[in-house]
Computed example of a mutant assay.
Amino acid sequence: MSQTKLQSFLEANVSTAIGFGISWAVTPFVMGAFGYSVGAGTAFGITVVYTVISIVRGYLVRRFFNRMEVRRG
């Protein structure tokens, strides 16, 4: 049984929300390792941009694989 589009969207968001918290916490350290000093606000902005990209990517990949499964079945 394949997921509905809504289920795919929700799954991608839950996974990405977990990643958001981890990314926000480590961004200042990673940026610092490359010589950039960033505060919590900048780290939040960077994390938001990558989170949006991640949500779209996760949704599209999930829909692609669901479509491939339907065509085989």
Rank of each mutant, 00 (worst) to 15 (best):
M31R: 06
V61E: 14
F29I: 14
G21M: 03
G73R: 13
S37R: 12
T51S: 11
E69C: 11
A43R: 02
V38M: 09
V30C: 03
P28G: 01
T51K: 02
T47G: 01
G32K: 02
F64C: 09
K5I: 07
G21P: 02
G21A: 05
V49Y: 05
T47C: 02
Q3N: 10
S54R: 11
W24P: 01
R67G: 15
V61Q: 15
V48T: 11
F29P: 06
S8P: 05
E11D: 09
F29W: 11
K5E: 05
F34Y: 03
G32S: 04
L10G: 02
F29L: 13
A12R: 00
F9D: 01
G58Y: 02
F65H: 12
T47Q: 01
M68D: 12
N66F: 10
T42L: 15
P28V: 01
V49M: 09
V26C: 05
S54W: 08
R63M: 12
G21L: 04
G32N: 03
R71G: 01
S54Y: 07
Y59F: 15
V52S: 05
V56E: 04
V61C: 12
S8I: 10
F34T: 00
V56H: 07
R72A: 09
L60N: 08
R57F: 13
S54N: 11
L6R: 09
M31C: 14
K5C: 10
R63L: 13
M31K: 10
G58Q: 05
S37F: 07
Y59W: 14
I53N: 09
F29N: 06
V56R: 03
F20S: 03
F34K: 01
S15F: 08
L60W: 15
F44D: 01
S37A: 13
G45S: 09
F65W: 11
T4Y: 01
Q3S: 09
N66H: 11
R72P: 05
M68E: 12
R63K: 13
A25I: 10
V61T: 08
G19H: 01
G39W: 03
Q3E: 07
V14K: 07
F29Q: 08
I46N: 03
G19F: 00
L6S: 08
I53P: 07
I55V: 15
A33I: 14
K5A: 11
V14T: 10
K5G: 10
A12Q: 01
Q7F: 02
T51Y: 07
A33R: 07
V49F: 06
V61N: 14
N66Q: 12
A33D: 05
T27C: 06
F34E: 00
T42Y: 14
F65A: 12
F44L: 13
S37P: 08
R71F: 10
F34G: 00
K5Y: 09
E69R: 15
V14C: 05
A25N: 13
M68C: 13
S2T: 15
F65Y: 12
S37W: 07
V26S: 04
T47H: 00
Q3F: 07
Y50P: 07
G32R: 02
N66E: 13
G19R: 00
A40D: 08
V49L: 11
T27K: 04
F64G: 09
A33S: 13
S15G: 11
A25P: 08
L60Y: 14
G19E: 00
